[in-house]
Design a protein around this nucleic acid. Structure first.
Length: 141
DNA sequence: GCCAACGTTGGC
DNA sequence: GCCAACGTTGGC
């Protein structure tokens, strides 16, 4: 069976918190204006996971979302940018803070740390396992 | 093609 | 509120 990929998606809770995503049931990740982030969006497949991270305030991964629609033209611009749709999958039992992530050896190479201004970054399978363990959360089978 | 100025992101 | 990192822009 095809293995899904995992990504980390930043959102400022002031603008769009996890709770709003849960309420909405679905949201469009638009407004990305960075080439590397755009490439990441374009690499996403339906069913891929997205760690939902609260930037600026909270600074923690709070939930796991799932890609429900592959990349398409970002409707907020005429230029060549992409967006995807994601739906909430499940909240983390224990949110994983940036401090926790930095303190964990196995996560030192996470793209979100090495390029901390990127709003969409890849997460490797081992990194996902570590984070889920820290979050005391298991993905549904 | 270089580089200074400037804007944005995001941690602190 | 400040500042570091870094991408973009524009003058030359």
């Amino acid at each position: 069976m095809a293995r899904t990929h995992t990504w980390l998606i930043k959102s400022e809770p002031k603008k769009y918190p996890w709770s709003q995503l849960v309420k909405d049931g679905l949201t469009r990740c638009d407004g990305v204006r960075d080439f590397e982030a755009r490439n990441n969006l374009r690499a996403m497949a339906v069913g891929d996971l997205g760690l939902f991270y609260h930037s600026n305030e909270g600074k923690e991964v709070v939930g796991v979302a799932q890609v429900t629609r592959e990349h398409y033209q970002d409707p907020t611009t005429e230029e060549d940018w992409s967006c995807v749709d994601v739906a909430p999958l499940l909240p983390l039992v224990k949110p994983v803070t940036l401090v926790d992530i930095k303190a964990r050896k196995g996560l030192a190479k996470m793209r979100m740390l090495t390029h901390n201004r990127l709003s969409v970054t890849p997460v490797t399978a081992p990194e996902l396992r570590v984070i889920l363990a820290m979050a005391e959360t298991e993905l549904p089978a």
